[in-house]
């Protein structure tokens, strides 16, 4: 079996993490709309807590390995800022 090169392996990890982040964040957004008008639904509250935890965990790993997705995750250094502005925007296919 051919092992993926280091670059493609990390691209795979990056895609997987992004997918996790999007999925958790989408669940949070969808549950959030429901909770706006159903604030005492305990099942929805539990799901929201779980998705928030998954989102925060995945976002922290992503920020550490691949760079910031949010302003609060930007490393405050010349390299950190250059990477925040300089990495591909999500409308590019090679996000």
């Amino acid at each position: 079996m051919r092992m993926p090169s280091k670059a493609s392996f990390s691209q795979m990890q990056k895609d997987e993490l992004l997918c996790k982040i999007r999925a958790a964040e989408f669940s949070m957004r969808d549950l959030g709309l429901y909770l706006d008008t159903h604030p005492d639904d305990e099942t929805a509250l539990a799901h929201f807590a779980q998705q928030t935890e998954e989102f925060e965990a995945a976002a922290a790993i992503y920020a550490e390995r691949f760079g910031a997705l949010r302003l609060s995750d930007v490393p405050n250094s010349p390299d950190g800022w250059a990477a925040w502005a300089g990495t591909a925007f999500p409308w590019e296919k090679e996000e």
């Binding site: 982040i21 999007r22 302003l71 609060s72 999500p90 409308w91 296919k93 996000e95």
Partner: peptide, 13 residues
Amino acid sequence: FQYEKTLEYPVKI
């Protein structure tokens, strides 16, 4: 508003 550098749903055409 705070920008998040990812699409809500991915676009790869």
